[in-house]
C-alpha cells in the first residue's frame, strides 16, 4: 500500500463523508415534506430546491460565532469537532464492495466502529456541559443517559453477528454472510437499528434535543458554523448507522451480480435504511424520557440477549 493509494482512499472516504450526509439531508427535506402533503424547498438551485442545503450552509457560515460568557471556552469550541469527526473515522472501515473496496480493513472492525461511534455522542455531552446553560445541561444529561441505555443493546446485537461470523472484521463478516442470516439475525438487526437511532438522538428518540421543551438541548448556545457541524454530525450519523446496519445485518454488497455491482448494493441498502430513519421521524411523536429508558432496558436488552442465545444455539447446531 503506497502513499498514493492511501491518499486516494482517504479522498474517497472524505468525499463520501461530505456528500452522503447532504444527500440524506436533502432527501429528508423532500421526503418529509411530501409525507406531510407539502413540497419542501423548491427554489434554491432552480430544480426542486436541490441546492437548499448549500444555501443553508452559506447562511450558517455568515452567522456570528458566539461563545457565552460563562462557558468553558475551549471545551465549548471543541465539542462540534468531537461530535462530527468520529463518523468520518468510522466511514474509513466500512466495506463498500467485495474484497478491497474499503478505506482500511481493521481486524477488530465491529469493536472499533462501536467504540468510535460512542465517542461521537460525547460531543453533545461536552457541548451541553460547557455551555453554562440549564437547557444545555439538561440536554447533555439526557444524551448521557440515552448513551448509557442504548450502547448495551447495540453492542449485544453487533456481538451476535460477530458470533455468527466468527470474526470481528467487517469484511470478514460479509465474507461468511449467507442469505438466511437475514432471518436468523432479524431480531438483532431491529435492536441494532433502533438503538442506533436512539444514539443519534433521532426522532422518536430525540428527547435530548427536544426543541419544543429544552430548545435543542446541548446545542442551545451554538450558532453559525459550529451549530451546522452538529447538524452535519447528525446526518453523518444517519449515513454511518444505515451503512453499518446494511453491512452487519443486510449482507452489505451481497446481491445479484455482486462481483461487479457490490458497491451499488451497499449504497442501495444504506439509502433504504436512511429513508426508514426519515420515515420514522415523520411518523412517530417524541418518546418521553422515562419511556426511552424503559424501552431500552425492558425491551431492547432482553431482545438482544435472546438474539445472542439464538445465535449461539444455531451456531452449535450447525457445527
Amino acid at each position: 500500500m503506497d502513499v498514493a493509494d492511501v491518499l486516494w482512499r482517504l479522498a474517497a472516504v472524505l468525499l463520501a463523508f461530505l456528500l452522503l450526509p447532504l444527500i440524506v439531508g436533502q432527501a429528508e427535506h423532500k421526503a418529509m415534506a411530501h409525507m406531510q402533503g407539502r413540497v419542501g424547498p423548491m427554489y434554491a438551485g432552480g430544480f426542486h430546491g436541490w441546492a437548499q442545503l448549500v444555501a443553508d450552509g452559506v447562511k450558517f457560515a455568515q452567522k456570528e460565532d458566539i461563545v457565552p460568557e460563562g462557558a468553558d471556552r475551549r471545551i465549548f469550541q471543541l465539542a462540534p469537532a468531537v461530535a462530527l469527526l468520529p463518523y468520518l473515522v468510522v466511514l474509513i472501515v466500512i466495506p463498500v464492495g467485495d474484497g478491497d473496496a474499503v478505506g482500511q480493513a481493521v481486524d477488530a472492525g465491529v469493536f472499533f466502529v462501536l467504540a468510535v461511534m460512542g465517542v461521537g455522542v460525547l460531543g453533545s455531552l461536552m457541548g451541553g456541559w460547557a455551555s453554562a446553560n440549564k437547557f444545555s445541561l439538561l440536554g447533555g444529561l439526557r444524551t448521557a443517559a440515552q448513551l448509557l441505555a442504548y450502547e448495551l443493546p447495540m453492542l449485544l446485537a453487533a456481538a451476535s453477528v460477530a458470533m455468527a461470523a466468527g470474526t470481528l472484521s467487517l469484511p470478514g463478516i460479509l465474507e461468511s454472510w449467507q442469505w438466511w442470516w437475514l432471518l436468523w439475525q432479524i431480531t438483532g438487526g431491529l435492536v441494532f437499528f433502533t438503538a442506533g437511532l436512539a444514539e443519534l438522538q433521532r426522532p422518536p428518540f430525540d428527547a435530548p434535543v427536544a426543541d419544543s421543551e429544552i430548545i435543542f438541548g446541548a446545542f442551545t448556545e451554538y450558532t453559525g458554523l459550529r451549530f451546522a457541524l452538529f447538524l452535519l454530525a447528525e446526518y453523518a450519523g444517519i449515513v454511518v448507522l444505515s451503512a453499518l446496519t446494511a453491512v452487519l445485518f443486510l449482507g452489505g454488497w451481497h446481491g445479484p451480480a455482486a462481483a461487479d455491482l457490490g458497491w451499488v448494493w451497499t449504497l442501495l441498502k444504506t439509502a433504504v435504511l436512511a429513508f426508514v430513519v426519515i420515515w420514522l421521524r415523520v411518523s412517530y411523536p417524541r418518546l418521553r424520557e422515562d419511556q426511552i429508558q424503559r424501552l431500552a432496558w425492558t425491551v431492547l436488552v432482553p431482545l438482544a440477549l435472546f438474539q445472542i442465545a439464538l445465535t449461539g444455539v444455531v451456531k452449535v447446531v450447525i457445527q
Binding site: H34, M35, Q36, G37, R38, V39, W279, L280, V282, Y284
Partner: peptide, 21 residues
C-alpha cells in the same frame, strides 16, 4: 398502531401535495 402510522405517512407521500404554488 405503529404500522398504521407508517402507512399513513407513506400513503400521503405517494399522493399529490396540497401546496399552492
Amino acid at each position: 398502531g405503529l404500522a398504521k402510522g407508517l402507512a399513513v405517512t407513506l400513503r400521503t407521500m405517494t399522493r399529490r401535495s396540497v401546496t399552492a404554488h
